[in-house]
């Protein structure tokens, strides 16, 4: 913050130059960033987490989500399916996954729609390994998804929302704005209109996915972003969609694009 304040001070000394700077910065943002509020205003849920929760996340040894990352590491080298292969047979070390998760959800020409990391993992299992797909919320899926995303920890989110991804992004956006359930509320009503505002015991965050799968103290385990979507749907008395459904995957792209440039935190800890 001090650093930023100092920069502001210096640039304001430069007078007109600073205006020009601000102008060009805005222009360059508008091309790549679909978030109308500006990427700098978006904050990770970490910002609103309590100090003990943050500490738990900050230290890999106290972060309980790493129990699942360990399950993921074990699965990475475990052969399964008729092809007799493990992930490592084709991808060697998991560090080859560095940066991959930052680009998901991603359009797949083969499927003609988006793939979240979990869809890609199951695609490799069924197509490449001739193994059974994992259930979305199974320990193995959560573990491998967390392991793959953890390879991109600290890297900026960089999803594609143009070209073939655009119609799916648009659907996700529409879905985000749509009121649902007995309480007739949209995601926007809470996470955009009232960010930083107390709603009973919670303070509303931007509702982003950059830390998922996340260890939730309430769940006493790690869970997927789609599980969180189901929870937010049910809280407004709406019938949730299935995890891995097109609706949630499109919504995931919208949220992820919303957090464009933000660092991936997986696995995060939340209350």
């Amino acid at each position: 913050m001090n650093f930023i304040n100092n920069i502001t001070r210096v640039t304001s000394l430069l007078g007109i130059a600073s205006l020009l700077l601000a102008y060009t910065t805005n222009v360059s943002h508008s091309g790549s960033n679909p978030n109308p509020q500006g990427v700098n205003k978006m904050k990770s849920g970490y910002h609103w987490a309590t100090a003990p929760t943050r500490e738990m996340q900050d230290d890999d040894f106290s972060n309980p989500a790493f129990l699942w990352v360990d399950i993921g590491s074990e699965q990475w080298t475990t052969k399964d399916g008729e092809a007799g292969k493990s992930c490592a047979s084709c991808h060697s070390g998991v560090e080859t996954m560095k940066g991959v998760a930052a680009t998901y959800p991603k359009y797949s020409a083969e499927d003609g729609k988006l793939r979240a990391v979990q869809h890609q993992i199951n695609n490799c299992r069924t197509q490449q390994m001739k193994a059974k797909p994992w259930k979305w919320e199974s320990d193995n899926m959560l573990g491998v998804a967390a392991l793959v995303k953890n390879q991109s920890k600290g890297m900026p989110i960089k999803v594609k929302v143009t070209g073939e991804a655009q119609p799916f992004y648009n659907k996700g956006k529409k879905s985000y704005m749509l009121r649902r359930g007995g309480l007739d509320m949209s995601c926007k009503n809470c996470h955009m209109d009232y960010t930083d505002t107390r709603i009973r015991a919670n303070i509303l965050s931007n509702g982003l996915g950059n830390g998922f799968p996340t260890y939730r103290l309430k769940w006493q385990k790690i869970g997927s972003l789609h599980r969180r979507f189901r929870g937010c749907n049910k809280n407004v008395r709406a019938t949730p969609f299935k995890s891995g459904s097109d609706v949630y995957t499109n919504l995931e792209l919208f949220l992820t694009a919303h957090a464009m440039g933000m660092e991936i935190e997986t696995p995060s800890v939340r209350n």
Binding site: R179, R180, G182, D184, M185, C190, R237, A238, T239
Partner: peptide, 18 residues
């Protein structure tokens, strides 16, 4: 508004129970 309409029947994907 985010404030629910407390005496109006909502119609979009309402949980069965409600």
């Amino acid at each position: 508004t985010i404030m629910p309409a407390f005496h109006k029947v909502a119609l979009n994907r309402v949980l069965k129970k409600f």
